[in-house]
Amino acid sequence: MRYGLIAFFCCCVLPASTQRTVAGRVVAEGTGQPIAGISVFINNSVVGTSTASDGSFRLTNVPAGDLIVSGVSFESIVYTVKPGEAPLNLRFELKPKVKELDNITIGGYVTESWEKWGNIFLETFIGRTPMARKCILQNKEAIRFRYYKKEQVLEAVADVPLVIVNPQLDYIIRYDLQDFKISFSTSQSYYSGFALFLERNATSKRGAARNRKKAYYGSAMHFIRALYQNRLAEEDFEVRRMIRVPDIEKERVRKIAAQRALQLAKTGLMEAQSQDSAAYYKQVMGRSDYTNYYAPALLRTDSVLTGTIGGYKMVYWNQFLAVTYLGATEDREYLQYLGAPNRPALHQRSLLQLKGPVGIDQRGNWAPPGDLTSSGYWGWSNSVGNMLPLDYEPLQ
Rank of each mutant, 00 (worst) to 15 (best):
I104W: 12
Y171G: 11
V98C: 07
S76I: 05
R144C: 08
L94W: 02
K95W: 04
Y79L: 06
N89Y: 06
Q152G: 03
I182N: 03
G107N: 02
K95Y: 07
Y191S: 12
N103H: 06
Y171L: 10
F121H: 02
Y171Q: 13
E155G: 04
S187K: 15
N119F: 04
R144H: 14
Y190T: 08
T186V: 00
G108L: 12
V81A: 02
L90H: 07
L122Q: 11
V160H: 07
I143N: 04
V78H: 14
K149R: 13
I106T: 15
K95R: 14
C135W: 02
K95L: 14
K140F: 06
S185F: 00
E100G: 10
N89P: 00
G118R: 09
K134T: 13
I136Y: 00
Q138N: 13
L101F: 05
A156P: 08
Q188M: 09
F145L: 09
L137N: 00
S183K: 00
N139H: 12
S76R: 06
A142M: 07
K99H: 11
G127T: 09
L90F: 07
L162N: 09
F180Q: 01
I126F: 01
C135K: 00
Q168K: 11
D176R: 14
L137S: 01
K116T: 15
I120V: 12
V157H: 08
F180Y: 07
R128Y: 05
V98K: 13
Q168C: 12
Y191E: 03
V78C: 08
F184I: 04
S189P: 01
E123A: 14
L122V: 06
I77K: 15
A132L: 05
L90P: 07
T124L: 13
W114K: 10
K149Q: 13
F125H: 15
E93P: 02
L169V: 06
V81C: 03
F184Q: 01
